[in-house]
Design a protein around this nucleic acid. Structure first.
Lengths: 159, 159
DNA sequence: GAAATCAGGACCGTTGCGGTCCCCTTATCC
DNA sequence: GGATAAGGGGACCGCAACGGTCCTGATTTC
């Protein structure tokens, strides 16, 4: 299905959530606000932090914050952080060389396809995915609602 | 990794192979020519036939042939035939409705991403992927080598 | 010093995919 | 008309990846 992983979807939700409300937010708080299970949120945030998409601060009053604003984060970065580099097949861009190097009739043939997809994903930012006319109007208020404000058990990734 | 399935890759190889040489080719013949295991080739061809991308002819002297020329088959069709419709997440285009219908903050937000990818994949045909100046030189000879002629266990999809 | 919070793994169950095999139907050829 | 060649449509199984959870340790604030 050319489907991306659930974690990637969660990552987008979490990042968008980080883009609103207070600058620094804890993972339990984000979990409560988004409806994503807390351990999963923590896992996603750790990955995003390792990728440099969010910055973390440990200790009491710690939490996560965005490094770049939403409109400066193409979803390609999210996908790459969670699912790894975008590569439809294994042997693109001189990656792990297939055993049939010279014989392989498809040698390098997938590259333009990959580039087309990368270009498509690089042109869409998280700001484009954050609902423009909704809930962005009251960022601080949404944060003030605190835990359990938005019960979104399965999100749209369900099934 | 936003990776497509191996079968899709095999399908491209098989389709390109069908685009050369004789009009009607049997699955064992294609398997021998491409190095893909025969049962797998048969499986791919059955799926492609069900999708209407190739036409089959049963009985002695039967086989498969292309319905459209390579330059009239966008790879999006291949991917859709093998991996199913292109849908990064489950709830696009009004598919299986997620439980958080109205609340879901990402409601419909993935749609433009899907469309961008679809557009990118629709613009590339199998003819673009068929290597223009390589290995096309000796198609029949390769077939004559018979099974095990091309030990390409993993192709470039490996890993 | 105590509490809060992130860091980094380890750990399993489930799912889907890759790959193979079987039997049946259909069409051609002798 | 029988033998043979070929596709049709499944069933089947092993494996790897993913989703999801939990635990222990390190770090910072109060």
């Amino acid at each position: 299905m050319l489907r991306l992983s659930k974690l990637t979807d969660y990552a987008v939700v979490v990042m968008v959530r980080l883009g609103r409300g207070e600058a620094v937010q804890t993972s339990p708080c984000i979990a409560a606000a988004t409806g994503v299970p807390e351990p999963t949120v923590a896992k996603v945030l750790k990955i995003l932090a390792a990728a440099g998409l969010v910055a973390s601060h440990r200790g009491a009053r710690g939490g996560y914050r965005l490094v770049r604003p939403l409109d400066a984060v193409p979803i390609a970065d999210i996908i790459a952080a969670i699912d790894g580099p975008i590569a439809l097949t294994a042997c693109v861009d001189g990656g792990t060389s297939c055993e049939a190097q010279g014989l392989c009739p498809m040698r390098g043939r997938w590259d333009p396809v990959n580039r087309a997809i990368e270009a498509a994903l690089a042109g869409i930012t998280l700001a484009d995915m954050a609902d423009p006319g909704l809930s962005f109007a009251a960022p601080v208020e949404a944060a003030a609602l605190g835990p359990l404000a938005l019960p979104l058990p399965a999100l749209h990734v369900a099934e």
